[in-house]
Design a protein around this nucleic acid. Sequence first.
DNA 1: ACCAAAAAAGAACGTTCGTGCTATATTTGC
DNA 2: GCAAATATAGCACGAACGTTCTTTTTTGGT
Lengths: 196, 196
Amino acid sequence: MSKGNETRDAILTQATSVASKVGLTGMTIGQLASHTGMSKSGLYAHFESKEALQIEILRHTRERFVERVIRPALQSPRGVSRLHTLFEAWLTWSDAFEEGGCLFVAACSELDDQPGPVRDALVRDERDWLELISTVTATAVSEGEFPEDVDVDQIAYELHAITLNHQHASRLMQDPRALERARRAFDSIIDRARKT
Amino acid sequence: MSKGNETRDAILTQATSVASKVGLTGMTIGQLASHTGMSKSGLYAHFESKEALQIEILRHTRERFVERVIRPALQSPRGVSRLHTLFEAWLTWSDAFEEGGCLFVAACSELDDQPGPVRDALVRDERDWLELISTVTATAVSEGEFPEDVDVDQIAYELHAITLNHQHASRLMQDPRALERARRAFDSIIDRARKT
DNA sequence: ACCAAAAAAGAACGTTCGTGCTATATTTGC
DNA sequence: GCAAATATAGCACGAACGTTCTTTTTTGGT
């Protein structure tokens, strides 16, 4: 990798961390420059605009997300086991953001009413993510663990709700039992799906 | 009410709407001034600082929340019925923000890692809100609708998760079935609580 | 070791930010 | 209806914003 791409990557990593704390909009070029030890213009030269940078941050984060959350799940056996791995991988992923929590979660409520290409990119990512949860849930159906007539999209909806709330409970409320509550919620969704 | 308090209130109402779209931090005094047709300094004279304004916005929103969500629920018969009223009132409340959705939901992920008095105020509000859900859930226990050993805080956790996710589904993803999904999720949480 | 190419810095731009201060309107109590 | 109190506007500030230049430094191939 050339020097240029190396710094560009380092910038994106740093930017992801900053954006997860102050938001994609709240993050400023100057802030980012001092965090990376670069000049504003030197840093800016790697991107066309702040908006382009925001989109690149999302892309960068998605790549990490795929390798740290999705891949391990897909290597797990089909069915509830895979669903469980996916959920636990997400919890680990969320905790990995030292502060600020999952960038996607932050971006979701930040951009939910800010039309534009950044929001569009995020919506695509979230749609993919929800569809993946549905798909993995469907493996539990085809493995015979869930009844045929279970609504996989509804399960995905409810599982996604838990991940959102985990951020709320662990980051904002600092509830020491947040992890435990998330896992119990997961279990009861699975339980109910089993005997629908 | 004096002229001063009248405009102050009008400012807060407008500010709540703006902040629900762009966030408490993203909102600026200038933006607010043009939305209210006042000068920056004329508007600013009503508040000590932007931070004080943010706290006042939260207070203003909480008052409206109490009268539109909590009060109707407390006038409803104890038990599952009251829980149901509370949930539906919240859905209505959330939809009432013409754009931007519930200010609290937006503020929660915006401030979850921004220490300071604004965050502290929000955490207090959220704690109260969660405790209220727990308390109302407990009325279903004392009415004999839920078993004695049900974990009311866990139920509150899961119900809260649905409200958070409703914003995601309806605002960000623009899912036309968001309301339906939220209600089904509510029902299944209640169902499961009934036969624990 | 040199030299073109690439990367980073420097300096400046017009704008907007939050926040003061001072002056002018407007409301209120007598 | 006038004075006092209150509310609003005008103006200015230093700082930071995103962005665009030009100049300097660093890199990589020969």
